[in-house]
């Protein structure tokens, strides 16, 4: 046994595990840190909204309508971001709106991610007729005017949190499917798939243990993109009055309600707009960062 020549590498060094590598890289990855902070902050705001919100987001008060924010003339610390046209505290509505936004965005991304990845992996791995069916479904989906269909579905099923999430998920699975299918085809061309077939690994094993870990990065990237888009579309639907129904505070509804006072009270529309903008950027940075630090070869 000892007669086999030893490998030339005689340097005694330890090989860091992928988690150590990812941790080391994330220490210097500013995009990931910013993205993670923003998303973490939004998540904390959503979870602890009932504890940190200074007022009831539904409590109307006709005597304190359209109060200015704290930095404006006559502003007070009672309503840090002022009040809206019904006298409701804007900060509280913004915090509660985070719940809706995060649930819709995350839920839609996860559901569409599962649907799209399953279809894409099946098509890419099995090829042939399965692939033809998957491509047909993708083409049908691409041919449909998505937002119009979302509008009509919302008007049929109503604007509840669950129906909005599911409808958005059904809107966005196609990009997952396209990317997962192509990535699967690329992975399947590698010899380690043939090696796994040679040792008698089942198809389930090959899909879950050989293919999935190697396309997870691409799926995470698409997931972060789709989550951001779902948040934007939810805001757009709410703005049009076809999303989450008032008085439930969603960021889109906040923008929509502030539209009438756009010139008198611009901060009412700027603040939820900025919130959407920052969260979307944060999610994109986070997704990009996760991809960068977990790729085996690393990326800069």
């Amino acid at each position: 046994m000892a007669s086999a020549p030893t490998a030339t590498n005689t340097q005694e060094m330890d090989y860091p595990s992928p988690w150590q590598n990812a941790w080391e890289r994330s220490k210097t990855h500013i995009g990931l840190q910013i993205g993670f902070s923003i998303v973490l902050l939004a998540a904390l705001a959503a979870i602890f909204a009932p504890l940190i919100a200074p007022a009831d987001p539904y409590a109307q008060s006709l005597t304190s309508r359209l109060l200015p924010a704290v930095w404006q003339p006559n502003g007070s610390w009672d309503h840090i971001l002022g009040t809206d046209a019904y006298g409701r505290d804007v900060l509280s509505r913004l915090l509660y709106g985070t719940q809706v936004t995060m649930i819709v965005g995350f839920g839609a991304a996860v559901v569409s991610g599962i649907v799209g990845s399953v279809l894409g992996i099946l098509g890419g791995y099995f090829g042939g007729k399965v692939d033809a069916v998957v491509i047909f479904l993708i083409n049908v989906k691409l041919a449909m005017p998505g937002v119009l269909i979302a509008l009509s579905l919302v008007s049929i099923f109503g604007g509840s949190l669950i129906s909005i999430t599911v409808i958005l998920a059904l809107l966005f699975w196609d990009r997952f499917a396209v990317v997962a299918r192509t990535a699967t085809q690329q992975v399947c061309a590698n010899e380690y798939i043939a090696a796994a077939e040679c040792v008698g690994a089942s198809r389930t094993w090959i899909i879950f243990r050989e293919i999935l870990p190697n396309i997870a990065n691409q799926i995470i990237i698409i997931g972060s993109l789709e989550m951001a888009i779902a948040i934007l579309v939810e805001a757009a639907l709410s703005f049009l009055g076809l999303g989450i129904q008032p008085p439930t505070p969603s960021w889109g509804i906040l923008v929509s309600e502030a539209r009438a006072f756009m010139f008198l009270k611009p901060h009412l529309i700027v603040i939820p707009g900025m919130a959407i903008f920052i969260l979307v950027i944060g999610i994109n940075l986070l997704g990009d960062g996760i991809r960068d630090v977990t790729a085996p070869q690393g990326r800069n």
């Binding site: 992928p18 061309a189 590698n190 010899e191 380690y192 043939a194 090696a195 796994a196 040679c198 050989e210 870990p213 190697n214 085996p296 070869q297």
Partner: peptide, 13 residues
């Protein structure tokens, strides 16, 4: 089997 390309015959994950 022993395959041709050791850069693609091992699962990088």
């Amino acid at each position: 089997p022993v395959f041709q390309d050791p850069y693609s015959s091992l699962n990088p994950r």
